[in-house]
Write a protein that binds this DNA or RNA. Structure first.
Lengths: 335, 335
DNA sequence: GTGAAAGCGCTAACAG
DNA sequence: CTGTTAGCGCTTTCAC
């Protein structure tokens, strides 16, 4: 293994000079710099991460805590993770992947060991048990998601309340009066996941405001669960003409079942989804939808982290405005 | 920040004793150990990762290199990543997430900096440019996937050649004679991804052996691409009665289109998939399929890594035997 | 513009 | 069973 000392000897300079050439923290004469750079190249030198971390108290690592659950739409999680990793690299950071499994213990491990300089948390619950630890640790952190009390924390998320409202408005504008919301799996609500509850809230408020009749049903996704859910919806509200789906794995079953029941989309029934773009585009009917800006969320989370690490406090809640794209699945309500 | 020295002072012992209590590398009297443990607890001590890495030349980190591409089925990648992370934690390792983006440079960065003790690579191409670097670095590595020359490397993968053969056998056994294989996106073959080519090879060999007529068509997935592909298949081979699909995003479009054309599954046409269990089960027809053992692959990769780190050489290629589960999508060939 | 030297916090001989 | 001590490789004052 080549060390900085060897490079220094090879270049005929002191260790500190090599270090400063590397960090750029003080000016070095052109000739010295070139000599050092040449030696680095010649010897194939790579700074040792551990030594660097010890001496500088900086690891250049951002910890990313992902949910282990399988009841969320995985590609979105993945897209966020990849955006985080890519953006982090662009700022000189690597990413340590943690799963939610360890829960608060992982937070303690990371903050305690100095393994990472900052943390990004996904799948935040309204009253997340990792947050108190995070607050007291003073480690820069950014949440992707919005807890009920974001005080002292930086959060990045789609504005799900506005998203719910936007979907309701779209359907109302087309003349629909009876609406059914097909939601995430019941477990998602049971653990009080922020985005699911906030969507529902936005939906409810706006529905009331616009005089819509709203039915909300969590759904496991898949054909069997959807058959049951849909049956109940039309039993209770035969006049339902608009659907809002927030559950990727319920989308195709819903479309398929409506078709089988002879209900045409969008002539008889309109469907609006809250989902990844890919799902909206690949569905058997191109879906009018609010897309989940996964890439943007991941990127912005990292950018906030980097800002914080640069010493600028940004205890901000950044809610991304929803955008609804009209496609083939929504149209005027039937008479 | 609490240091080991402070713990030592608090417990009235030397630093090395604390260190040995932590590592268990030498026996400590019960009373001393308890005193030390109590001090650790009382002071809230956490070992510093950087210092530890520097002194021991061990980071307790495994680097996982994932593809950044979006043309592979994401949930499988994710399941592997989570299995890797979970298994790694069980062995005391954390996971550093790298994207394929940086390519060979990332390998150099990790091996050079001592940032990780070992590497796991996903999405291995037949002639992967990261492999030479990996071989010369002497860093323990495990590939998830199988390159054309696995010499000196440990590999874990589903036996895709056997998988292809197994699918062909299943259809042949049901009396099908003309078979179409709907494959991954063309780009996947263009970059010579091991699993795709090996599946095809197994399929071809076995088809020849059994006297099946085989047509292979890469497919982008989605309804539009599938419409075109399917049209061509039935133009060229009107007698096609069996399909083998290895592309998650082509599954539902294929089923939907067959239905629209009035071809019943499995009465008129049989479909066998090579895909994640979840896809096979959630499809509109429950699919006869060989499932991708993602969890197992991730877990075994880590276990091989750990074995290597323990000093035992295991330059093995571990091919997981495929298992075909018969469900509702395959049946006897029509007359 | 450059060097010397003191640690950063921990591990692992070596010594008893 | 426990203590002493010499580093691990780098960063960063302090000094010139």
């Amino acid at each position: 293994m080549v060390t900085l000392a060897e490079v220094a000897r090879h270049a005929g300079v002191s260790a500190s000079t090599v270090s400063y050439v590397l960090s750029g923290k003080r000016s070095i004469s052109r000739s010295t710099r070139e000599r050092v750079e040449h030696s680095i190249e010649a010897l194939g030198y790579h700074p040792n991460a551990g030594a660097r971390a010890l001496a500088s108290s900086k690891s250049n690592i951002i910890a990313l805590m992902m949910p282990l659950r399988t009841d969320m739409y995985v590609p979105v999680m993945m897209e966020i993770a990849l955006a985080v990793t890519t953006t982090a690299r662009a700022h000189g950071y690597d990413v340590l992947l943690l799963t939610g499994e360890e829960g608060p213990a992982a937070v303690r491990r990371v903050t305690g060991s100095g393994m990472a300089d900052a943390m990004i948390l996904m799948d935040v619950e309204l009253d997340d048990e990792r947050l108190p630890l995070l607050r007291e640790s003073a480690m820069p952190a950014v949440l992707i998601g919005l807890p009920s009390d974001p005080a002292g924390l930086t959060c990045v998320d789609l504005d799900f309340a506005a998203t719910g409202a936007l979907c309701a408005e779209h359907l109302a504008g087309l003349g629909h009066r009876e609406i059914a919301a097909i939601g995430e799996a019941p477990a998602v609500y049971e653990r009080h996941t922020g985005f699911a509850e906030r969507t529902l809230e936005g939906l409810r408020l706006k529905s009331r405001e616009l005089g819509l009749r709203l039915l909300h049903r969590p759904s496991q996704g898949g054909y069997d669960a959807m058959t049951a859910t849909l049956g109940r919806v039309f039993d209770e509200r035969p006049g339902t003409s608009g659907f809002i789906v927030q559950n990727e794995s319920a989308v195709e079953p819903l479309l398929g079942l409506l078709r089988r029941q002879g209900r045409a989309v969008p002539e008889d029934v309109s469907v609006v989804a809250i989902c990844a773009d890919q799902v909206a585009l690949q569905a058997s009917v191109q879906l009018t939808a609010v897309s989940i800006p996964a890439e943007q969320m991941g990127r912005q989370a990292v950018e906030h982290v980097v800002t914080k690490l640069a010493g600028q406090a940004t205890d901000v809640v950044e809610l991304i405005a929803p955008e609804l794209t009209v496609r083939a699945s929504s149209g005027l309500a039937p008479e």
